[in-house]
């Protein structure tokens, strides 16, 4: 689950709908990284208070066709009664006891702002059928099972497919044969250091596959990496894209906030707003934008405090090696 989070348009000349997208799970990987648990979970919950007898829980399960009922009062989550608990209660003859006495309290829970890649990892690790979902205030806000994830992924994949088909049609209409040689877009999440750098690594691999000159590949990869780390460290999350068309390679980092107050200052050697944690990871020396500017043929930063930032680094492509 810790694979890159690229979203993906891979368009090849003359074979736009061909290889690349179809054989590549990158779209799926991007989706499970982008979608949050809150986008997938069931929020209409059938819950019971601690005083409810287990026989009432059993009846609720039968009526709602569910296999687990959270025990909560005023949003505060106390535990879960599963179908196993009910079977044990029937066997043990205590089906009329209040559920607080027999509910499962040692629970693994998820938070609503976690990516669903995280939820999938938990399903693999713990083999539970469902996980309660809490918000940042530790209030119960939903419940998630694998079926919820499958349903949403199918809907999102269908949307993505439509988008790719439209993009390929548009590109062909413009000039008969697409001028777009390579286009990739990646989602970068705030403080997601587990995945930061994967997009740039992937961009470098793609450029190597296309046998561009090694020095050019390195310059583009360095720019992509610096911009990806910047998105991860300084923005609220954003998109990193790499495009090669008409003899020019462009790496663009876009985010929706928080924006740079003084762009000139931010592009100066050694100036950084990074905290100690970022520095302990080997970054935050204030050299990121300076380095992008150094390696790029064209460099541009557009930013406004509160409205996000777009950094564009362009490179002249001199041809394949």
């Amino acid at each position: 689950m810790s694979a890159p989070a690229p979203s993906s348009v891979l368009l090849e000349p003359k074979s736009i709908a061909g290889s690349g997208v179809g054989n590549d799970p990158l779209v799926l990987l991007e989706l499970i990284q982008r979608l949050k648990v809150r986008d997938v979970m069931t929020t209409e919950l059938a819950t019971v208070p601690r005083s409810a007898p287990l026989c009432d829980v059993q009846e609720l399960m039968r009526r709602k066709k569910i296999s687990g009922v959270p025990v909560e009062e005023d949003g505060r989550f106390f535990g879960l009664v599963s179908i196993d608990d009910i079977i044990r209660a029937l066997g043990g003859g205590y089906i009329n006891d209040p559920c607080s006495k027999h509910m499962t309290t040692k629970l693994v829970v998820l938070e609503d702002d976690m990516p669903i890649s995280f939820a999938l990892r938990y399903f693999n690790r713990y083999h539970y059928g469902r996980f309660p979902v809490l918000n940042r205030d530790r209030r119960l806000v939903g419940i998630i099972c694998q079926r919820d994830i499958n349903r949403v992924l199918l809907v999102e994949l269908s949307k993505e497919l439509n988008r790719l088909e439209m993009a390929s049609g548009k590109s062909l209409d413009q000039d008969g044969v697409s001028e777009l040689y390579l286009m990739r877009e990646f989602t970068v999440c705030k403080y997601d250091f587990e995945n930061a750098g994967k997009a740039a690594n992937e961009i470098k691999r793609l450029l190597q596959d296309r046998q561009l000159p090694p020095k050019l590949i390195r310059r583009i990869a360095v720019a992509a990496y610096e911009l990806e780390i910047n998105l991860c460290v300084h923005s609220d999350g954003g998109m990193l894209s790499c495009q090669i068309a008409k003899g020019k390679a462009e790496v663009v980092a876009r985010d929706a906030g928080p924006g740079i107050e003084d762009v000139e200052w931010a592009c100066r050697d050694g100036t950084s707003t990074a905290n100690e944690w970022i520095r302990s990871l080997g970054f935050g020396a204030g050299m990121g934008l300076v380095n992008v500017k150094r390696v790029a043929d064209e460099f541009e930063v557009k930013s406004k405090k509160g409205s996000g930032t777009t950094v564009r680094a362009a490179f002249t492509v001199t041809g394949a090696a």
């Binding site: 250091f193 930061a196 690594n201 610096e226 990871l281 080997g282 970054f283 020396a285 050299m287 380095n291």
Partner: peptide
């Protein structure tokens, strides 16, 4: 790592006391 990214040398060996995935990336 910011310093390493500034270098233009090829085929380098990186000696570091930083133990994290970002070193490899």
């Amino acid at each position: 790592m910011s310093d390493v990214l500034l270098l233009d040398e090829e085929d380098m060996l990186l000696l570091t006391s930083l133990a994290g995935d970002q070193v490899l990336r």
